[in-house]
């Protein structure tokens, strides 16, 4: 279980996350939504121990501040926003980096690496260099790396942003098929909300303002209010229509 108590993160004088408390159960899927600058990414970074914060965060009962990087990495893995890299690591090299928190050996022939690559469907790219991949291919490789890391939770920061229509479908399929993993996913993609399901959390100005499920009857109203728009009008553009 992830437990956040009274979390506050400041960047200088600006408050990015304010007095936020949250519990995420094992295997729970959480979609984190909110306008730009509402503190979603900062929340993920706090969970990963990448920013200084006030308050307390517990990963399976142990406080984040007291854990080493490796110990945190065994609890939560991270799928960052898509990035570009000039570095010519092969997909296999790249995916195998996910094993770091378990062992410092060179694991290229480890079955887990090949399985993860196969699971996200990029076996044909195993020896290709990551700086030559398309956005969708790279995103799958990053997910494979997170799978190899084999933590209880996967944190994802807009995994479908910048992807084409087909890649979005494929990536969402991969994520929704994950078993026994807690997922905390930042997304602006209503398709993701529909496909992944689970808990929906809305954030605005660094505060948690709604927690519910996609079945909640007042979800649409809350989303409309959070983003100050009327989402009913875009229903027709969804691949997975809102029920």
């Amino acid at each position: 279980m992830i437990e956040i108590r009274d979390l506050t993160v400041r960047y200088g004088k600006k408050i990015a996350v304010e007095n936020l408390s949250l519990k995420v159960k094992d295997g729970e899927r959480v979609i984190l939504m909110g306008p730009n600058g509402s503190g979603k990414t900062t929340l993920l970074r706090a969970l990963l121990g990448l920013v200084k914060f006030e308050g307390r965060i517990f990963l399976n009962g142990r406080e984040v501040g007291a854990l080493s990087r490796t110990e945190i990495a065994r609890e939560i893995s991270y799928v960052p926003q898509i990035f570009s890299t000039p570095y010519a690591f092969t997909v296999k090299d790249f995916v195998s980096m996910g094993l770091y928190s378990h062992s410092r050996e060179w694991w290229h022939e480890d079955r887990r690496v090949n399985d993860a690559i196969e699971m996200v469907g990029i076996t044909n790219l195993t020896l290709k260099e990551i700086n030559t991949l398309s956005g969708g291919e790279l995103q799958k490789a990053i997910i494979a790396r997170a799978l190899v890391q084999d933590a209880s939770y996967i944190l994802m920061d807009e995994p479908t942003a910048h992807l084409d229509i087909r890649s979005v479908q494929e990536v969402l399929d991969i994520i929704s098929n994950l078993k026994n993993k807690g997922i905390i996913m930042v997304s602006h993609d209503l398709n993701a909300l529909n496909k992944i399901g689970g808990t929906v959390i809305l954030m605005k100005n660094g505060k948690l303002i709604f927690r519910g499920t996609k079945e909640d009857s007042d979800l649409k109203r809350w989303i409309s209010e959070t983003f100050e728009t009327n989402i009913r009008e875009i229903d027709d553009f969804l691949y997975f229509p809102l029920t």
């Binding site: 121990g49 990495a73 991270y78 980096m97």
Partner: peptide, 20 residues
């Protein structure tokens, strides 16, 4: 040398993978 590889990918990712 393993850590040097991972650091090249970026600091945040390296940390999230468990690299100090």
């Amino acid at each position: 040398r393993k850590e040097l590889d991972i650091i090249l990918i970026g600091d945040d990712q390296a940390k999230s993978l468990g690299v100090n």
